[in-house]
Design a protein around this nucleic acid. Structure first.
Length: 596
RNA sequence: GGUCCUGUAGCUCAACCGGAUAGAGCAACUGCCUUCUAAGCAGUAGGUUUCAGGUUCGAGUCCUGACAGGAUCACCA
């Protein structure tokens, strides 16, 4: 039983003995005492004044005295207005700390024996990744790490959207203008090359529309009748029919794109356990349409189209099969949901997809639940907000996107400039220096995108957004590097900082107590992040921890202390902070350096 | 127009699901490198939490209604 549980239980006992009232410990909780007051945990008295039948001060004093008497860990208490602030003894905190440093990984939970799939990234194969995809990739990867630490067996899945009208557009433009160019001949990454033809398609398409309108056609009609659009649609039909030439072209372009994506994923440090391709899954789900009709979840209209009636779930009707018997997006997603379950027996499934698809997933999940799927209750849409630029929304076709590869390069370059300016690369080999720039640049980028609550839209200003000071990845990385230097020195002078050598230290300072309090909170934060599917919880935590550590670092000396146990304790405390930073940053997908 | 999301310092974000005097970072200003890394630390200044009501011991947080921004409402994906 941890101290919070002991405190709530004892408070409950206090109500029984002092006020003859039964108070369930589960019905109230303690909060951390705000730092401007003295104490560790605070019990809010206001809701209970009717029970105690006395003023807040008197009630608090009685309960406080009771706690102090019953629990040796309670050193003192004070009552300010309606708040009972409880201070725990230094002995308690040192004891907690000593237990903590002997534990293995500070943030891991016992295995639950349950599986969860996290689907993220899921790119279209007609263009390179951009800033929006980065938020998606970092979120998905981090959430997968967090769920794993929380005890789930996690399968990271990438559902690649490799077929459809979008890739046909690139194919048409390539065939007309490509002159057999290849990534090698064009000197472009594969995904960038294919993306180039996607943009070219759109330019030519717009010209064709303009021309048709000038010839007297309505805009609506012109959009359908433009020659290239018709060509793209024909190509899609041919692809579905398995026309060899079309399929070859499709394979060629997609393979180039995959090579490009692989390179980008590698520099992002993102990996997957399972790839799904829409070219394999786009026909799935039709059997579920029949099942739904039988179960009365779907109904057929006169023209033969099939709909889901979701009025019971507060939604309207939704098409699941066209009149001509072809499937829509929803059909395929129903089939894929079943496929995921069939492949992995997952109980929980997280879809990392932008909030523009909120309605789609609400409908999909409702359908799967109405169909009585065993995994229905475990479906979760991690809906994240768009990343805006100062100029507004990003649009691929209008060239207002921030390209992922360019951005990463820029970040690494900035890290290089900044580091060299500070003159901090003494003793680094060329390779080590480059690895450091990579680590810092990516750390800054990942942290920037992860520190914000996922569901909120966020603003990215390429000139200003990425900093290396304050609430940033490099700040936390720097804190780790500082501690690493202390540990190097400790090992150099062969300092023993095992639990045993720290134990005699009793004169705990405020900044030290705050740090221990923080360190013990890490597990809770991992749990919270897992339940909310929010890496931002971890990011915020790490920043606070690093900040508290830097204060400690500035205020208290280590190696100039004369007493061995003080040195040992402070080095051990530093080591534990470093361990926690490393663990937390790993959950975010960020590496930390030994020197910077 | 219907539905959903968001609105907190000049800017970017927090606030442990209703608790104390709403906190950080950036930008501005003032101090601190003869000590374990100054990518740091300490401090000053900056707020009618978009607005108006309501619920209660207590509201940035819950409810209602405005206002502003965004998303979505295809036999598109």
């Amino acid at each position: 039983m941890d101290i919070q549980q002991q405190l709530t239980k004892t408070i409950s006992n206090a109500f029984q003995e002092l006020f003859d009232h039964t108070l369930d410990p589960k019905t109230f909780s303690l909060q951390a005492t705000r730092k401007e007051f003295s104490g560790d945990y605070t019990f809010v008295l206001f809701p209970f004044l009717k029970i105690t039948k006395s003023a807040p001060e008197a009630s608090g004093a009685k309960i406080g005295a009771y706690l102090q008497e019953k629990l040796p860990e309670v050193a003192s208490f004070n009552v300010v207005k309606g708040f009972l602030n409880i201070s725990l003894s230094a002995a308690y905190w040192t004891e907690v700390f000593l237990q903590l440093i002997e534990a293995e990984d500070p943030g891991s939970f016992p295995a639950k024996g349950r599986k969860v799939m996290v689907e993220f990234s899921s790119p279209n194969t007609n263009k390179p990744l951009h800033l929006g995809h980065l938020r998606n990739n970092f979120l998905g990867f981090s959430v997968a790490n967090i769920l794993e630490a929380y005890g789930y067996e996690v399968i990271k899945a990438n559902l690649v959207n490799d077929r459809g009208i979008h890739i046909c557009k690139s194919m048409v433009a390539y065939e007309k203008l490509g002159e057999n160019a290849s990534p090698e001949s064009a000197g472009l990454k594969g995904d960038h090359l294919v993306g180039k033809y996607y943009v070219l398609f759109d330019q030519e398409y717009k010209n064709q529309i303009k021309k048709l309108i000038a010839e007297g056609m309505t805009e609506e009609l012109a959009k359908k009748e433009a020659p290239w659009m018709k060509a793209a649609q024909e190509m899609l039909v041919k692809w579905e029919a398995g026309d060899p030439h079309t399929v070859d072209l499709w394979k060629k372009l997609n393979n180039w794109v995959y090579q490009g994506f692989d390179e980008t994923y590698r520099s992002l440090g993102v990996t997957f356990d399972q790839y799904y391709y829409e070219s394999d899954t786009y026909l799935l789900g039709k059997d579920i349409v029949n099942e739904g009709l039988e179960k009365g979840v779907f109904f057929k209209k006169e023209n033969g189209s099939v709909w889901a009636d979701l009025s019971s779930a507060g939604l309207d009707e939704k098409l699941v099969l066209r009149a001509d018997g072809t499937s829509v997006y929803m059909t395929q997603d129903m089939g894929t949901a079943d496929l995921k379950y069939k492949d992995h027996g997952i109980e929980k499934s997280v879809y990392v997809v932008g909030n523009e698809q909120d309605y789609h997933f609400e409908v999909l999940f409702s359908i799967m639940r109405l169909l009585g799927r065993p995994y229905g209750e475990g479906l979760y849409h991690l809906s994240y907000g768009m990343v805006d630029l100062p100029s507004g929304k990003m649009k691929s076709r209008e060239g207002t996107v921030v390209d992922a590869d360019d951005l990463i390069q820029e970040m690494v370059d900035t890290a290089r400039d900044h580091t060299q300016e500070l003159g901090k690369i003494e003793g680094f080999t060329q390779e080590e220096a480059e690895a450091l720039y990579q680590m810092l640049g990516l750390g800054a980028l990942k942290y920037f995108l992860l520190k914000v609550d996922p569901k909120k839209r966020m603003l990215f200003n390429p000139q200003e957004s990425i900093e290396f000071q304050g609430n940033t990845g490099p700040f936390i990385q720097y804190t780790h590097a500082r501690i690493a230097a202390i540990l190097r020195k400790a090992s150099q002078i062969e300092l023993d900082f095992s639990a045993k050598s720290c134990a005699p230290y009793t004169d705990l300072q405020d900044t030290e107590r705050v740090l221990i309090f923080h360190l013990t909170d890490y597990r809770n934060k991992v749990g919270m992040a897992a339940e909310e599917l929010s890496p931002a919880v971890i990011a915020q935590y790490l920043f606070d921890l690093a900040k508290d550590y830097n204060r400690f670092y500035a205020e208290l000396p280590i190696f100039s202390e004369t007493k061995a146990e003080v040195q040992a304790f402070r080095v051990a405390l530093s080591a534990q902070v470093a361990k926690t930073i490393r663990s937390g940053m790993k959950l975010l997908g960020i590496d930390v350096p030994e020197k910077m």
